[in-house]
Structure formats: structure tokens, C-alpha cells
Amino acid sequence: MARMKFLCDADRCIECNGCVTACKNANDVPWGVNRRRVITLNDGLPGEKSISVACMHCTDAPCAAVCPTDCFYTTTDGIVLHDKDLCIGCGYCFYACPFGAPQFPTTEAFGVRGKMDKCTFCAGGPDEPGTASEYEKYGANRIADGKLPACAEMCATKALLAGDGDLVADIYRNRMMSRDGRPQTWGWAKAYGAGA
């Protein structure tokens, strides 16, 4: 069975924010919530690097470990999803996540947190795929349609790879063999363990 992973090739990312826009557009993400964002290290300096960051769908997801309502589940493909009907918006997952993936809409008064929203690998949630209720709560379910996550599919330079870990690693390995330098699988060790 596949283990779905994201990998951002920092040498290819040109900080165009196409992935962010694609995600927002595909999932109709509410104002103030960024399921995906591009981080630039050493911005403006020679050798700056940009990385596209979202939920990494960790093997042993810390968000799921700390959730007091146990609203998280992991699909057989390793995609970490959650049930918004159970989420109470406590924010524990936000503090536990090393990637800052969980987002909370603050559309209510006094900064009251809404239900947590995060990248679903474009796999929706525990609703019938393709229904209006699923789209409203979780966004698009492109996986059920046999498609890649919108961010990866939209990436112009193919810096952002998504899919089975073996495939993603193979693509990246082939790239590294034609390049100088060391591989930079940013976030992989933290998300998938030291051996990843």
C-alpha cells in the first residue's frame, strides 16, 4: 500500500506561490486560512531557498496524538484527515504540529477559534466524496477523482511532488544524480522518521 507524502524540491521552487493559489482555489479555503504557504529562507541573499509547506501527513502524526476528541484518522495510504464534526477548535494540534499546518478561522467575535482546517492532500474528509457538504467542510476530494493534490499538479517547475513515498523519492533521487550538492529532503526526517 502506498504512503502518500509531499516533497518540496528547494532547488526548483521559484517562490511563485502557485501552489498556495491552487490550494485556495481548489478548496475554497476561507479568508485568513492558509493550508499551504511558501517559506523563503535567507530572503534576498545569495543562495536563498524557498519551500512550500503544508501538512506533511506524518507517519506518527503528533496532532492526532494530542487531540482530546480523537477527530484524526489516517487512511490506508497514510493521509492524515480529521472529522470537523468532532473538532472543538481547542488548538492542541496547532501547538503539537512541527509544520504549523493546523489553521483556525477566526471569523467569530473575540478571536474565538473555529474548527481546525488543514491540508487534506485533496482527499476531503469523512463525508461522501464529491458532495456539497464535503466540499464545504473539507474542500475538494481530488484523490477520489483519481487526481493529484491541486498544489502539486499546479506546480510549474515540479518542485512540489506528491504521491507514494517510493515514487517521490525515486523522482528526487534521479534529479539529485544529475545535480551537484546534497539532497535536501526538507521536513522528511521529522515527518516520516529518521530513516525516511
Binding site: D70, Y73, L81, D83, G124, G125, E128, N141
Partner: peptide, 8 residues
């Protein structure tokens, strides 16, 4: 996990 089953 105590939520609904995911048909996916």
C-alpha cells in the same frame, strides 16, 4: 478515532 467512516 470516533468520527464518521470515510467512504474514500
Amino acid at each position: 478515532y470516533k468520527g464518521a467512516d470515510d467512504p474514500l
